[in-house]
Design a protein around this nucleic acid. Sequence first.
RNA 1: GGAGACUUCGCCUAGUCUGGUCUAUGGCGCCGCACUGCUAAUGCGGUUGGGGCCUAACGGCCCCUCCCGGGUUCGAAUCCCGGAGUCUCCGCCA
Length: 418
Amino acid sequence: MIDLRLLRENPDVVRASQRARGASEAIVDELLDADERRRSAVARFESLRAEQKQLGKQMPKATGEEKAALLARTKELAAEVKAAEAAVTEAEKRLRSLQLAIPNLVEEGAPHGGADDYVVLREVGERPAIDNPRDHVQLAEGLRAIDIERGAKASGSRFYYLTGVGALLQLGLLQLAVNQALQYGFTPVIPPTLVKPESMEGTGFLGEHASEVYRLEADDLYLVGTSEVPLAAYHADEILELDAPIRYVGWSSCYRREAGSYGKDVRGIIRVHQFDKVEMFSFCRPEQAHEEHLRFLAWQEEMLAKVEIPYRVIDVAAGDLGASAARKYDCEAWLPSQGRYLEVTSTSNCTTFQARRLNIRYRDESGKTQMAATLNGTLATTRWLVPILENHQQPDGSVRVPKALQPYVGREVLEPQR
RNA sequence: GGAGACUUCGCCUAGUCUGGUCUAUGGCGCCGCACUGCUAAUGCGGUUGGGGCCUAACGGCCCCUCCCGGGUUCGAAUCCCGGAGUCUCCGCCA
């Protein structure tokens, strides 16, 4: 949700941001107009209401004719107040829906343009030289690590079972991620994965991504696509102490409908309806957010280094940012079987956008309440198994376990079963 | 699933029966000042949040806010209806 004060004082900043995203600029003027209308409706209501209260106070002491006159006037006023109040409600409704339709202001420096206009910031690590690389499905089959057929049998397409070393590998990877986060002062959290509409709305997932979200109609609850949702909602309607950032690391299953993604990444576990994720989340002061964002990215790169995967970092273009994000960096892992990069992490600086919707504030030095900033970033997911298996495969179909994962998995090499 | 109790300005709490003087009580915490060799203690004062208008600013005036949404009324923290949440007991089940 956009800051109305900023919009009023500086509409050109909002227009420029919309332009960078390739989004509507006209809506900015609609919003300005709605804001204007709301304020005049409020002013009318408040002056009527003030008079009503004034007269109401005289009522108990009034007698006789005086009282009759008061009654007549206040009865009249009551109707006017009611009408004025309805006008305010109407104006606020319009304002709010427009306000919700405008995405976050893009951070200065973010590349302009659409999905293909990202900027590659760096490539890290050496791609392994593998002749005729097996893909993760073939490798997992040999290792008996992922059972896609039975996943389809039990639950349908894009579901899977992680079995044996597959299950161990995921558990190890996620624990490695949590342990790293603990080192940097994060509080571990296992959140609810069913949330109320307000939580979904507050994090901005019911806009353009609404069709991606599972909804339980009978209970009016949503299955979260990321623990970002319950982590952000954790402090909804609270006033926080934010001398230093408050950091949580969430571990949860994530659910995505993947509607309209048919034909994309159909094979294996690259794009699935359910997966597990360890997610960093931070509440901080707006002026700390940029630095925190870079820290998140550094911690993601630290994880990728631990599992010894070659990757690149991209600066996502404005038009490809989610509605909540002001800036987003993705890490993409190298995929030998496909000769391309695959997104494995994403970190967004949501500045005050989510906090404004969720009403999350802090007190500054002068004691005034201010909107907090929120940030999120992936630390590990089920999808990571794909580049881990593929990049560490051996000619015989076995897979070397990265050193950092060995204590969790309990072996140095995963051998194919026969 | 059934029955009951409860939800008040950061936290705890008075007020709700009997509508107006609630512009919401007190305590804790926090902030400021005074006192004190320093600290502690004490005293005095301040302290819900959101919004509108006026102002260069300091500040001032006003509206909303007693879980949420309706209703009754000239007037609602208070009465009525609906909803949410918390707790207790019962039932059922891991």
